[in-house]
Amino acid sequence: MTLNISKLSLTGTLVLIASLLLTACSETPRDPLRLASSPWPGYEPLYLARDLGYLGEDRVRLFELPSSDITMESFRNNSTDLATLTLDETLELIHDGTAMRILLILDISNGGDAVLAKPGIKDVQDIKGKRISIVNIPLGIYMLSRLLDSAGLERSDVEVFPMPESKQLAFYEKGKADVVITFEPVKTKLLEKGAHVIFDSSDIPNEIFDLLVVHEDVYQRRRDEICHVVNQWYRTLDYMQQNPEQAADAISKRLGVTPQDFIEMLDGIKLPSRKENINMLGTTSPGILEPAKKLNDIMVHEKQLMRHVDISSTLDMSFAECHEG
């Protein structure tokens, strides 16, 4: 009789295993990872990755937002899983209590962020009393602060109009601003309209970082897909290196500039390699901590942040060199 019981349980087990296998085979196709981004040359490789089919629409969905402030908001209110953010935005979000991880340093601005002035304003000294349009994200304040520092002026010396970068061109064109603190591709478009650069991020190297961030919960749950995004990022950088013209053609269209413009834009940013990323985010003393602290100080000084934020716990190295499961 023991034989019968064991036979029975064996049958049952087999049925269970078969059912489990069945489930495994038809595993829930998850919603794709949501990634929100806005126009900026340093973010463009993500779109290129999508258009090349590297990312895969069913795995990562890119939301094309018109301006960086919306991106930040969408990340803050969980409308997206990943977002491309500037370091200052990141600091603010962490400060405000958004649990997140920094996955990648997408680029370091080296001229891509700039202060443009209408003709007649020769240098930074001339901005006193002028109307200045700034992007309505912490970066705008930061750049203004650095501009004022270099000019030796006070905040009260200028009239400031914060707005999304998408509105800056029209604002300038209508003559509502004398100076525009912005970044690419608005910078190029302003140059076309006769504005000229009086100050840019190459004057303050290694201060403006653009990052890829992810919500903490997503980071915990969807590591495979995150790894996928990171790997495809580097893959796309390789593609751009090997096919600069095709890449420029594809990207410039989206930014509304000429391919040549885009190639020039690339001079204004630095795209860190995998190794540089590791150095900045990993090791015993990650390279990003120092600029982050400096930015943090300024932001506290500007009253943008109430206190210092320690970002070391959000730095992630596990995806710098990961393998998709």
Binding site: R34, A36, F63, E64, L65, P66, S67, I70, S74, S79, T80, P164, S166, K167, A170
Partner: peptide, 12 residues
């Protein structure tokens, strides 16, 4: 510009 913003957000 604002229309685009709204459309983008709706598309999120």
């Amino acid at each position: 510009v604002d229309a685009r913003l709204n459309l983008s957000v709706t598309a999120m």
